[in-house]
Every structure is written in structure tokens, then in C-alpha cells.
Amino acid sequence: MEAKSKENLVQTKPNLMLSALLIMLLVGSVYISQLIFQEISQSYHIDILAARNVFSLSCFFYAISFFIYGPLSDKVSTKLLVLVGSIGTVCCLFLSVIVDSFTLYLVTMSLIGFFAAAVPAALFAYTAKNTPNHKLPQAMGMMISASIVGMIFSRSIVAMLTDLRSWQVAFIIYAGLITAVCLFVPYGIKRSIIQPSTNSVRGTYLAAIKLLLDKTVVIFLLVGFLLFFVYLGLSSLLTFYLKSSPFYLSATTLGWLNFAGLSAVIGTIITGKLSQIIKERSLLIICLLAVCISVVTIGYSSAIYVIGFGIFALFLFVFGIQPLVIAMLNKIVPINSRGAISSLYLLSCLAGGSIGTYLLGIVYQNMTWNGVIAICVLLSTLNLILALVGIQLIKNNHK
């Protein structure tokens, strides 16, 4: 009876909805610059390709910080981490609209990535600890979906507001949305029913590093790295490609086109269901093959509706892969290392995304769009081969 009352204490729909809303807005704050590189470059009188560093650095600091905050979520109050992350992000958003140096602007946007990571890191851990096992897949699915919707929502709404007014006004409005939701944090996030870990933070980091000695783990971390290298790198450069000849799309049109990425939510649901009847390994290979086809569709099509379909498919399969790889990694490592492996996988994905955005920008500058697509197809094919090697290693270990 006591256990049931504890469950009810933290596991209510309003609590889950608040967590999902916070994750949506804070994850989204890392992606707000992706569709407005041109407007940022005009504000600071810099080359448009230099503006891509805004997203690359924000995403890189977000990835690194997530792994920093992960162990802390076992030691520090969830409410404190959420408030620190949210208030820090809001302050940086306000600061970003008043700095007159592009270098300071880069620093400010990097700090947004640093502070924003505290919120999903804390709330993913909080949800996992305070949800009954039979409700856990549904609850975690909501958190992952909130992250995906945050990426889509933030890019689209900021692009539209930028066309309507300016990116500075868009950032202030976005900061206002985070502030409004934060008012409910003291009432919506209760004390965890799980006591803080007695292990040292240093011990948690060492255990995570030791996982990198397993070559099967490293292979699947590389799969995540290359997957996001292609996905985020290509997504960012689409802004340049579709705003130039022969398309000349506005930021608003790009914002609407970006909503095709909501297919990512469908992807996580579909592969989660299919994994009950089809082997995860088989599904992974099918999805990686589909990613290759999606890249080709986006890269070599001249019709906007076909490119839109390619974007829909790319998001669908990239995020459909996520629960498959995470499940496979969790089965490889000991049960007490599952939190660490999730942090490492997320770090690999987001580091791949930020590095991909930067390096593919250089390729775009020197080899144009066709060079970018050729490299993305090559890396997607390499990823397929890596996954096959990793699956074979798993089979050999189970013999």
C-alpha cells in the first residue's frame, strides 16, 4: 500500500506533461539557429557558412554537458538541476540578442547548449527512477518524443518569427516560453522516491570510461556518431541549399517544410512496436539501408515535394533506429552500467551531429552540394557495414 502511494506521489499525468514540455523547450533551444543562418550572418556581417558554427558549438557543448550532468542527476536534486538549466538558458537567450560581437555571440550560444543539457539529463533520470516498470516504456517514449518535437518546434517557430519580425524578437519570445513553464517546476516536480546514489561521481565516470574497452560497444557508438554526422550535417546544410538557386525558399517556408521531421515521433513508435515481432538486428539493417535511400532522395531531387518526402523518411528512420541501438547496447553492458551507456550513446550522437555540421560545411564550400551528398551516401554505407560487424560480434559472443 505504501509503495502504491509513493508511485502516485510522483507518477501523475500533469507531472509527465510538465517534464515533456520542459524537455521539448530546452532541447529545442539548442536547435533554434538551424534555419536562420542567413539572418545571423547578416546581423554580424559574416559569411553565411561561418554562421553554421553557432549550431555546431551549441550542439557540441550540449553533447558534452549531457554526459557531465548524467552522473550528477544521481546526486543532486532534480528540481535544482532543472531550474539551474532553465534559468541559465533563459539568461543566455537574452544575452545573445544584445551582444554586438560574433565571437561573444558564439560563446553565448555555446553556453545555451551547456545549460540546456541539465534539463533532459535530470528529467530522463527522474522519470526512469520514479515510474513503475509496467509504465516505463510509455513514459520514456513520451520523453524521447518530446525531445524530437522540441527540435522540430523550435526551428520552425523561430524561423517563422524571424521572417515576421527578427531573430532577436524570436529568441526573446522563446525565452519567455521557457520562463512561463518554469513557474510550474516547484509544484510539478516532486521529491524522488529513490534515494540518491551512495557511489561517488568519480566512480560513475570511471565505470563509463571502462565501457569503451568493449569493441562491440565502440562499434555501436560509432553507428550513432556517423548516423547523426549525416543527419544533422545534412539538415543544417539544407538551409543553404534550399535558400539558393533554383529554390529560393524563405525561412517561413523552410519552417513549414521542417515539420516533415515530426515523422521522427512515428519512427520511434513503429520500431518500438515492430521490435516485439521482428529481431532488433534485422530492423536496424533495414532502417540504415532506408537512411541511405533517404539521403539520395534529398540530394538528387529537384522537386520540393520529393525533397520533403526525403526529409520525412530521413527523420523517420534516423529516430526509428534510436530505440533499437539503445536496446542492443543495454543488453551488451551490465545492468548497473545502463545509465552510463545511455549517456555515452547520446554523447556520440550529438558529437557526430556538431562535427558533421562543421565538416560538411567545409565540403559544401569546396565541393558544393553534390560533394556533400556523395560523402553522406558513403558514410551511410559505411555505417551499414559497421552495424553488420557489430551484429556479428554479438552473435559470436552468444555462441
Results as ranks from 00 to 15, higher is better:
339 G>P: 11
53 N>H: 12
50 A>V: 11
238 L>M: 10
357 T>S: 15
183 L>I: 05
275 S>V: 10
324 L>A: 02
25 L>V: 09
148 I>Y: 03
335 I>W: 14
92 C>R: 04
141 G>E: 12
398 H>K: 14
397 N>G: 06
64 I>P: 00
393 L>V: 00
263 S>A: 10
97 V>S: 11
65 S>G: 13
20 A>H: 09
209 I>V: 13
100 D>K: 15
79 K>H: 03
217 V>T: 08
94 F>W: 12
316 L>M: 11
189 I>R: 08
319 F>S: 06
248 Y>P: 08
127 T>Q: 06
124 F>N: 03
227 L>W: 05
238 L>E: 02
197 S>D: 12
356 G>F: 04
391 I>P: 05
34 Q>C: 04
275 S>D: 08
232 L>I: 15
356 G>W: 04
127 T>L: 13
261 G>L: 04
272 G>L: 00
175 A>G: 08
33 S>H: 11
217 V>M: 05
21 L>Q: 06
92 C>F: 13
266 I>L: 15
366 N>E: 13
68 I>K: 11
18 L>P: 01
372 V>W: 01
130 N>W: 07
251 A>P: 10
252 T>F: 13
136 L>A: 11
166 S>V: 04
221 L>I: 09
268 T>I: 10
246 P>W: 08
38 Q>V: 15
14 P>M: 06
101 S>G: 05
96 S>D: 00
51 A>F: 01
397 N>Q: 07
50 A>M: 07
194 I>H: 13
203 G>H: 09
247 F>Q: 12
210 K>F: 04
281 R>G: 10
243 K>V: 11
26 L>N: 07
333 V>R: 02
6 K>Y: 13
104 L>P: 00
190 K>R: 12
379 L>I: 12
4 K>F: 04
317 F>E: 01
281 R>C: 02
42 Q>M: 13
253 T>E: 10
315 F>W: 09
298 I>L: 05
132 P>G: 07
307 I>K: 09
200 S>R: 02
282 S>V: 11
92 C>G: 07
51 A>D: 00
